[in-house]
């Protein structure tokens, strides 16, 4: 196989690296408590809390590192961090 080393790299290509594997706590979103304010979408450092069609929010667990910022910032306490694998 020919080794192709270019000095440039492709945009957004870190997506190949699924950082969800880093997580030890997992944010779980309770839509019953949610007011759809969108704060969790702003305050995710990975930019992976997405708005669903029904207006609620859910993280992309493939990349969520489990930092807990979204849960800390949610004004409705609608996000709880639960230990992975439980």
């Amino acid at each position: 196989m020919k080794l192709i080393i270019k000095t440039v790299t492709k945009p957004g290509s870190t997506r190949a690296n699924k950082t969800g594997a880093w997580r030890s706590f997992m944010p779980v979103f309770d839509h019953k408590l949610c007011s759809k304010c969108g704060i969790c979408g702003i305050y995710c450092p990975e930019g992976v809390v997405n708005k669903l069609e029904n207006g609620y929010f859910e993280p992309d667990y493939e990349y969520c590192k489990g930092c807990g910022v979204c849960a800390n910032e949610c004004p409705k306490k609608a996000i709880v961090m639960v230990l992975e694998g439980k």
């Binding site: 080794l3 080393i5 270019k6 000095t7 440039v8 790299t9 492709k10 945009p11």
Partner: peptide, 27 residues
């Protein structure tokens, strides 16, 4: 072929670890 271009947004000057650095020098 590649320049800083908003229509083809490549990244210049990445961080290479031991698995790729040698080949930059070889090239």
């Amino acid at each position: 072929e590649f320049v800083l271009d908003t229509k083809n947004p490549m990244s210049f000057g990445a961080f290479a670890d031991p698995s790729t650095y040698t080949e930059f020098r070889y090239k």
